[in-house]
Write a protein that binds this DNA or RNA. Sequence first.
DNA 1: TAAATTGGTTTGATGTTCAAACTAAATTAC
DNA 2: GTAATTTAGTTTGAACATCAAACCAATTTA
Lengths: 155, 155
Amino acid sequence: MAEEKNNISKADFRFMNDALVDVYDHIMRIEEETLRKSTFRDISVKEIHLIHAITLHDHKTSTEVANELRLTKGTLTTNVKTLERKGYVKRINDEQDHRVTRLTLTNKGKLLYRAHDAFHRQIVKSFIKGMDGNEVKVIKCALINLEDFLSDITQ
Amino acid sequence: MAEEKNNISKADFRFMNDALVDVYDHIMRIEEETLRKSTFRDISVKEIHLIHAITLHDHKTSTEVANELRLTKGTLTTNVKTLERKGYVKRINDEQDHRVTRLTLTNKGKLLYRAHDAFHRQIVKSFIKGMDGNEVKVIKCALINLEDFLSDITQ
DNA sequence: TAAATTGGTTTGATGTTCAAACTAAATTAC
DNA sequence: GTAATTTAGTTTGAACATCAAACCAATTTA
């Protein structure tokens, strides 16, 4: 009640901090378990994040994807190689520039992408469950605050 | 405006999903960089999470901490060993039960714990920056929603 | 007191990552 | 227009985190 703006009670801090931390761990764990029990049991969470980065339609280059995921090019090469072996990803040789290889998902890869996306949609839906437009706005605002804060640190 | 309860627009989904994902990556990255530039440059993000789990005061057993972090006992043993070598953690032999070792932070470890906690406090503060008590309640509600949803999945 | 359980460590293997050396293609400079 | 430089991606060798399984020692149960 007597909460001051920009000043947060110890209890609120504890709650929000723990929630933010726990939620993330929890999501990762569920992603892992869900994958294990699905048709895609040969895929790890790290691998699905690579599949997500490759996306459905834009044929990004290896370097682009590596930068996005903040992996070295060497690491990306090996990761792509195993996903190619498992049948989720295809390399395409760029016609213009023969040095670059572009990455794309196979049908199996696209299927997995969509399943993963659906799971995330559920998460977001549950996040704002029962809220009206105004309340959703508050959540969005909080996320923008946080993104701004984080960007400021790194500038 | 014409937002229906429990139904989320494609744009809102995109925004929230990306924000949730990006925010987490970003926090990890900043934690890593901050550590690199600090007095604690010999500590990784994973190590700080172990230090956080050991906490300031309760002398948890190795098994307790392992379960909390969902690591095997073997993994915990090796992780604790390096943190002990680096001077952040101490083992204590339990007087009652001579099989158990309890974990505690050295002064250096406590210092790091507090620095890390302060960083998290900043994050939470920025998250609810400029919001009144009511708006904070909305955020808390969203986090509870999410936690419930995730718990339901695993039951 | 013998057998089973529990807490923790050690060991050997696997997976992820990196930095650095490398190859091939494209661009720039002379 | 060739030589030097840069760029895109791969390969290689090492480091680290993790796990499962075997193990040891202390405690509990039968």
